[in-house]
């Protein structure tokens, strides 16, 4: 293992958090979308994260301790849609109700803030690796 392994691990975290941010942004953007592909209102999306092994560490005795992260799936929230009475709406059903996505903007904002903080933490650990590598290069100067 070298510093590039540490940077690879940090990069996996950064890209997972960026995906989370994209998904939260897409949920927010579609909070009022009453017709998504496949019919019906837009369904809230969520990322599924899982720890993974890192290439190049298999032969070390502590390989199971080095864990990157990856987005294994983008799942759909199965919560029922929110019904609002609006008989004039073209998507209203026979009773005059329109099905809106099951999205709570506050929840999405919290998710975005969490993702952004985790991203910052990932940047910190990445720049620490760079700083350590620079220190090593300074030996013998």
């Amino acid at each position: 293992m070298d510093f590039f392994t540490a940077m690879e691990v940090s990069a996996s975290g950064l890209s997972a958090q960026r995906t989370r941010m994209n998904v939260a942004a897409s949920n927010l953007a579609n909070a009022q979308t009453t017709q998504a592909e496949g019919g019906g209102p837009y369904k809230r999306k969520d990322v599924v994260l899982a720890a993974t092994g890192v290439a190049g560490t298999e032969n070390t005795p502590y390989a199971q301790a080095v864990r990157g992260v990856e987005v294994t799936q983008i799942s759909q929230d199965s919560k029922p849609p929110r019904l609002e009475y609006d008989p004039g709406h073209p998507q209203a059903n026979a009773q005059g109700y329109v099905a809106y996505p099951n999205i709570n903007p506050v929840e999405e904002m919290v998710d975005m803030i969490t993702a952004s903080r985790a991203y910052e933490a990932g940047i910190t650990s990445m720049s620490t690796a760079v700083n350590m590598a620079e220190r090593a290069l300074g030996i013998g100067k």
Binding site: A16, A51, Q64, V66, V69, A118
Partner: peptide, 29 residues
């Protein structure tokens, strides 16, 4: 000592990457 601290950093970076992974427990060297 340098090797140890470098490898430990890799493990700690993995903990940061898995800040939101369900069921993940932090590791250390």
């Amino acid at each position: 000592a340098l090797t140890y601290h470098r490898e430990r950093h890799t493990v700690l970076a993995g903990n940061i990457a898995n800040l939101d992974t369900p069921g993940y427990r932090s590791a250390d060297l």
